[in-house]
Design a protein around this nucleic acid. Sequence first.
DNA 1: AGCTCATGGCGAG
DNA 2: TCGCCCTGAGCTG
Length: 283
Amino acid sequence: MVHVDARRFEERMRGRVVRASSPQGRFDDGAAALDGRTLTRTEAYGKNLFLRFSVPRGASGPRAKPWLLVHLGLIGGWRWYDAAARQTDGRRLRGADGSNRRVLLQAGRGEHAVSVDLRGAITCRLVDDGEADLVLSRLGADPLRADADPDSAYATIQRSQSALGTLLLRQDVVAGAGLIWRCEAPFLAGVAPQRLGRDVSAQEWSALWGHLAGIMAAAVDRGGAEVTTLRADRPPGTRRVRREDAFYLFRRGGERCRVCGTRIRSEPMGGRTVWWCPTCQPG
DNA sequence: AGCTCATGGCGAG
DNA sequence: TCGCCCTGAGCTG
């Protein structure tokens, strides 16, 4: 969850001088350009993480680029270490030298040290303000951001002949929603994912947006460790739900709907599976 | 040790 | 629409 990562960077590294290295050798130039600069700002937009670093006076080239832009893709992830945990965890690395680390960022020394590895990301690059704006301009409304504009997303949806389930995955419509949310939010709103965008009413969109924002925010509040929509009202810190109990629909094809008992159906939509309950989501 | 799949997205066809 | 990329976990033997 990118917003969880942003929060961690905000808490643990913002305002600190960062040492950057590229153990994997695939981000050598970027790491060299970042090394010694201060993390000044962290922003998450949809699935993109923007980390802003100070720009040294008179810098040019990559050292003049203020943003590190990261997209984790399907399998990428950040791994955090404090001063104590860092050594022990190192043994679990596939390469003894940490060869699967795209970039290693460290701040502080001794007991105040904090480190983080990036692995498997599909995007990890330095960008200037113009490039950052370009990326932002192609993103739709992010339900996790207070400055999001759900009306702009609805304007696109209302004009579209695509299925709602397809539209919800389009990052230029709703930024940050993935396969889980495009199933669970329509279920909670009682709208079938097959409904065409232009047939979704303003009231239905309002409900959908509210559910998206609610279940995604609940997942962030749980630190992303327990992505769940079911029982999203449970206070943080309570016992982790079993994976098979975590969702209303996601990956539960053929099982019974928790609300009405109807068999959950699934089908490919936009190249990926969508699940729905034909009773709770008629049409 | 080897296989498969995973909350994504891209480019080729 | 499909194949492919990135890495790790959870199986299988």
